[in-house]
Each structure stands twice: as C-alpha cells, then as structure tokens.
Design a protein around this nucleic acid. Structure first.
Lengths: 194, 194
DNA sequence: GTCTATATCGGGATAGAC
DNA sequence: GTCTATCCCGATATAGAC
C-alpha cells in the first residue's frame, strides 16, 4: 500500500497535463509543474530528460490508446454501420475520459520538435486511415452514401474530437447522451424529410 | 501609387499572422515578426503597444467578419435549409480565405489576457447563438429533425472550422467542392438507405 | 518612423551537496 | 531522489538618437 499516492514520475506527468491543458506548452513554466507535483523544478530532470519529453509522453500514450481502441472495434465488428457507431463511441469515450490529454494532443502539435512531430503525426495518420477504412468499406457495401472518404473522415474526427473542449463531467449531458447525439448527426444528418 | 506595398502597420500584422499560425503565439519571437515585416523589433512599438495587441487585432477582425457574414445570411434568407446551407458556405469560404487567421482564432484563445479573452469569447458566443437560431427555427418548422441544438451547433462549427487546418489552395479539392461535401454530410448524413 | 543599445526578467537546464 | 544555487540565454519592452 502506497501512502504517498502515485510514483513521482506519474505525478509529474499529471501536473504537466494540467498545466499544458490550461496554459499551453510554452506558457507553462516547469517550475509550476514541479510545484503541483510537490517537488523542485530541478528534480524533474531526474525523471525526464527535458520539458519536451513530458509533452511527447502525454501525446504518444494517448494516441496509441486511441489507435488501439479503434483497432479493437475493427477486429470485433464487421457490419459498417456498427463499426462506425462503435468508432464514434470509442472516440468520444476516450476524449471525455482523458479530456485534458486529448486537448493537448489536439492543440500542441506545433510545439513538438521535428522528429517527435513526425512520430505523433504518423500515429494520427494511422488513426485517420482506420476511419477511412470503415467509410470505404461501408460505401462499397452500399451502406453509406458514396462521398469523399478523406474529407468525411476529417469531418467526423474533428467534430468528435472537439467534444473534449466543451464537455464537463457532471454537466447537462452524460457521455452516453453525447455519443448518441453525435451518432445521429453523423449517420442520419439533420434533415427531417427522410 | 504606393511602391512600398501595404502600410507598415498592415505588414506587421501580416507577418504576425504568419508567425503565430506557424509557431504559435508564445513561440513566435517579436524579432522574427519584425524581420519578416522588414524592420527592427523596437519599431513595432511605434505601431502597436505590445505583442498581445497583434493577437487581439487578428482575432477580433476575423470574428467580427465571421459574425457579419452569418448575420447577412440570416437577413437575406428565410428558409431553414437554405439558411443552413449558406451558413456552411459562408463559414468554409471565410475559413479557407483567411486560413491562417482563423487557425489562430481557433488555437490561441488561451494566449489572450483575461479581458481580451472575454471579449473574443463573447464574439464567438454570438456566432454560436446565430447558428443555434437557424437550427431551432428549422426544427420548429419541421425541416430539421428534433435534436440537441447546442451540441449540434458545436458539431457543425467544429467540422467546418477544421477545414482551415488541412485545406490547401490549389490542392485536390476546390473550396466549392469542399463546401458541397460538408453540406451533404451535415444535411443528409452518411446513410445510403434514405 | 526607424534605428541602436540596453534594461529587465523569466525560463530551461546544470552542478554538486545531502 | 531531492535539494539549493546558479548559469545562460532569449524574450518583451524601453530610452533616446537620428
């Protein structure tokens, strides 16, 4: 039983998530991250080589998580409508559960150094490709209307991702309600006259 | 006839747009902005009181522009479907024409000092309210399916806004094609079986 | 209206003791 | 593994000449 709570490495990362999400990577001083974690700034360097490493670990962990979840959906389900539905659910579930983390993924790509940026963008690309696979397959099987697969994937990902910016746990809507609203918008559209 | 091109004030602002969009507000040194504008950093202070003023002017100008365009749509059109269609068109048109500017509006809200932030968020709120008015009216007149007006407005705005991040003039798709794709996704949804 | 020179500060990172 | 002390740099902003 660990009375001090999580290991320091985790505490630092969590403090970084908080600060990066609230003030942005560049505007968040390492000293403040250290203060929240309950140590001195210099002590961070025992756990991480530099500030950038914090950002990279946050982004990588969660992009991998996101990809794994979607991969799982593709393995478990076969029917296009169900696949898309579960993909939306998985995406929104993760973006509300790890709200701050995904907000960082979505707003701090520019703050990454070139090699790190390439790495994270590759993970994002993988994700987009998986979504596009669902759409392409669904169009071929005549479940979805024919349309631009790439742009459609961007649109779906963009709207489901933005949930992380406005969703408040304990607010007017539950995660499940939000998922249902998005499912309907994406799958059925707004028109009443169908 | 002005051989030097635009007045310096404009040149500085344009340089700021470029740098803020590429590196982010905090990561963009005033010296670099000055260099692009062809002057020394100190000279910027003859035209603007400080760095923050550059950011505020960029954001305010374009949020006002966005609101004016949507206001115009509401005044000119009455039919809900046409209103929504024109709103999408207006939004995407502006977000592709002033790609960098709206990218900044969308990613640097956090970099604003409190009073400036309140001001810009108020403008954004006005915009959201206008979109919600279109949706509410359309639902009442049975043109749109009943649904959560607020969340739907967020979803529409989010996906149309993100166009600014991937759109490249002269790329595979023209602005008009992009607008048509988004119209269809939003209004009709993905299902083929309607 | 633009320059050079500089004040001032805060940030990331390092050294070395404990 | 954490501390104190400090280095060093780059950033915004100002002063004052031209």
């Amino acid at each position: 039983m660990r009375l001090e709570g999580a290991p320091m490495r985790e505490q630092i990362l969590e403090a970084a998530v908080q600060m990066f999400a609230e003030y942005g990577y560049h505007a968040a001083p390492l000293r403040d991250i250290a203060r929240i974690a309950g140590i001195q700034a210099a002590s961070i360097y025992h756990h991480y080589p530099n500030k950038q490493a914090l950002l990279v670990e946050i982004m990588e962990t969660h992009m991998v998580r996101l990809n794994a979840a979607l991969q799982h959906v593709l393995e478990v389900y076969d029917e296009p409508l169900q696949r898309l539905s579960e993909a939306i659910s998985s995406h929104i579930r993760l973006h509300t559960t790890y709200k701050n983390e995904f907000f960082i993924v979505d707003t701090e790509i520019r703050a990454l150094e070139p090699e790190n940026k390439a790495h994270i963008l590759a993970l994002r690309d993988t994700y987009e490709k998986l979504v596009q696979e669902i759409l392409r397959d669904g169009i071929e099987r005549k479940v979805f209307r024919p349309g631009d697969v790439k742009v459609t994937s961007y649109a779906i990902i963009a709207m489901c991702t933005e949930v992380a910016t406005w969703f408040r746990p304990g607010g007017r809507l539950s995660v499940l309600q939000v998922i249902e609203i998005y499912r309907q918008i994406i799958i059925e559209g707004l028109l009443a006259t169908h």
